[in-house]
Design a binder for these strands. Structure first.
Lengths: 246, 246
DNA sequence: TTCAATAGTATGTACATACAAATGTATTAT
DNA sequence: ATAATACATTTGTATGTACATACTATTGAA
């Protein structure tokens, strides 16, 4: 319920951030799924007990993130989108991407192993093929079912033991626990059809459309640290890119 | 040359957008490549003859786009190592993309028609559904066979007659012939499997993996000018993205 | 010399206000 | 009935102001 939205003016957290969080939660709630109009800005600012200017700061962010659209003379409405999407700018880890959208993530599978790398992977990481590396497999998605299958391969210098907590955002953990700062991400996006293995993992049928993403991650010194493969159910995920001409 | 930065207070274009464009150009100039500090906001607002609040609107966007970083008590600086790949590099027409890869292009089909837009398209272009618009269909690829099928829908204000030469690079033609400057491109990339129609066009089999790209193109005033659908044979095309943190 | 307090500088947050522009609706005139 | 007009609503743009907070540089005392 809207009326319950409360902002703590004494909190250390800026009002516009509190408002942003509240709005994120609000538009996730069942009453706002169908592109419904929000209360107008003046009313909403009264409800939240903040100024319209401050409220607009919050809304701007949500518009930029693609959750809301505004129309002059009409109002602000929730974007009707069944699919998730990923912004190319300011890249984030998967869980950060999702939590930025207020989507709860469930891990269906999560296990690590030490393996001998394929030639391709060894080549990218710049190591020998007889050097064992850590492989991380994750099957993740929404509560109602998985929609992405990840395979990650890490460079030995990252220093992973396999004992880390892989439920936390990966790149945050790498930074905190191992001082590794993931800086550059190069991605190749393609399409393929699900084979038996992938169809089984993603709980879909063989021949279903899969958005396939290879991701090459480098640290602050442009040294390779991770080789990542992502198989996304195409009906649950859209990759978005925004660019402008010089 | 900061001092030359001039904003037209009588222009139709909002001050904050003018300022954003000026700053974009400014930070591209040689003097700002190395992470140099901009003038502080109060000075800069005086130079540009706009309020600090308005200036901050422009800077916010540039920060969000990853071109600038701000630090409390220090200042605003240009992001070092202008790696910002998606900013200026990513924006190309299909033929430019291909010629950059050294691939010769053949047009297998190319025809225009005037049609009533679907709801979705009319909504994006901001026109009524009973207004006829120009639809451009192109089937293109390598000499040995097509690998992409395009459908483009143009806003009436673009002024296309259907008599133009669509063999030349599209956005060049729009600029030269109609003074339309395509500025921003938002893309959604997904995967699907070929149905009979697409399989037939692309000379592949039903059920083949297709990389599907929706492209929304806007002019310099953020007005929509084109809605574009691209179906790529997945084994012939990979979409690459490069991004870096902060 | 060293360290802590202080002043200065620049961005961050927040509010009140005013008018412009787009949209939708109700009213009026033909 | 239909078209033109006026009006209300809502977001968009823009300014001025005030104080908070993070960082830097300087000053001064131990």
């Amino acid at each position: 319920m809207i009326m319950k939205l409360k902002i703590d003016h004494k909190s250390q957290i800026p009002l516009y951030l509190q408002a942003e969080e509240l709005l994120r939660r609000l538009i996730e709630s069942p009453e706002y799924v169908d592109g419904k109009l929000l209360p107008n800005e003046i009313e909403l600012s009264k409800i939240l007990s903040i100024s319209r200017t401050t409220l607009r700061q919050s809304i701007n962010k949500l518009v930029y993130d693609g959750l809301l659209t505004r129309k002059k003379g009409v109002g602000t409405r929730v974007v009707e989108s069944k699919s998730l999407s990923s912004k190319s700018k300011n890249w984030m880890s998967f869980s950060q991407e999702m939590s930025a959208r207020g989507i709860p993530i469930k891990n269906f599978e999560l296990h690590v192993s030490w393996i001998l790398p394929e030639k391709k992977i060894a080549s990218f990481l710049g190591i020998k093929e007889d050097k064992k590396i850590l492989k991380l497999v994750r099957l993740r998605g929404r509560p109602e079912g998985p929609f992405v299958y990840f395979e990650s391969y890490f460079h030995p210098t990252v220093g992973l033991t396999g004992e880390e907590d892989y439920k936390t955002p990966l790149y945050e953990m790498l930074e905190k626990e191992h001082g590794i700062i993931a800086m550059v991400s190069k991605e190749e996006i393609s399409a393929l059809v699900a084979d038996e293995f992938i169809a089984n993992k993603l709980e879909t049928n063989i021949g279903a459309a899969i958005l396939f993403r290879k991701r090459f991650v480098y640290d602050i010194n442009e040294k390779p640290i991770e080789y990542n493969l992502g198989y996304y159910k195409a009906d649950s995920f859209v990759y978005t890119v925004e660019s402008r001409r010089e």
